[in-house]
Amino acid sequence: MTFTYDGTFEGLLSVIFETYRLETTATAIVPAEEWQGSLFETPLLVATKEEWAERVKVGIKKKGGKKSLRLLEHCFLSEFPEVGKLIHDFVRKLMASPINISDNFGDDTVLKLHQIKKKIGREVHRMHAFVRFQRTQDDIYYAIIEPDFNVLPLLPDHFEKRYPAQHWLIYDGRRRYGIYYDQQQTEFVSFADDHALQYRQLPANMMAEQEVEYQVLWKSYFDSVNIKERKNPKLHLQHVPRRYWKYLSEKREQF
């Protein structure tokens, strides 16, 4: 049977709860808005219930520990079409087993989830590395990113610890929301008109006075530390795949 839900993690857990209640298992679980109509079946839409989701969370933690829950939360952010079903299968297997199965890498579901988590972790690490802030005139440090996965919710902790005394905004240009920190706390923000936020380089009238100078200095530093005799374009691309270049002021030709 195919289930649909509102696209949130709690929604997905509600579906899993519902499958137990109906004593059935799911063949596919997809966010309602991604459901591609089919002639042969009508999916069952499950409304999100906090209480149900909470009970599934408690169950996962009891059987698999906090780590298992975190594994599922992280994997969910991948937005892969099959991830709902994978999480469902994992919970079923976890509940049916007398011992914690979360390190059974011989099992396909477990292994796939760990592989997805690794991809998410790598993307988070890349965001820690490749975010480039531009200072605005009103002293906000602003960066635009377009990560492969929806990793913005995993970023605040790192940047809060690092920059507690400056205002910063990291904006996901593809998913069109951001995280904004005001020296107190981080909030999710979205804007009706995000036109100005979509530029790689902020418009001149928004930029702080010395911003371009520092970008130029950074690029000249980057160019000077290169050792020509050791040139290795393959290795370079492996570390900095081309799709990330757009964030990086040091890879830009002109300012």
Binding site: A129, R162, F222, N226, K234, L235, H236, V240
Partner: peptide
Amino acid sequence: LGNATGMGICHSYTEDG
């Protein structure tokens, strides 16, 4: 400003990798 805990971060890579 800043911290230095745990793992390092490579913010970029030169053309020699």
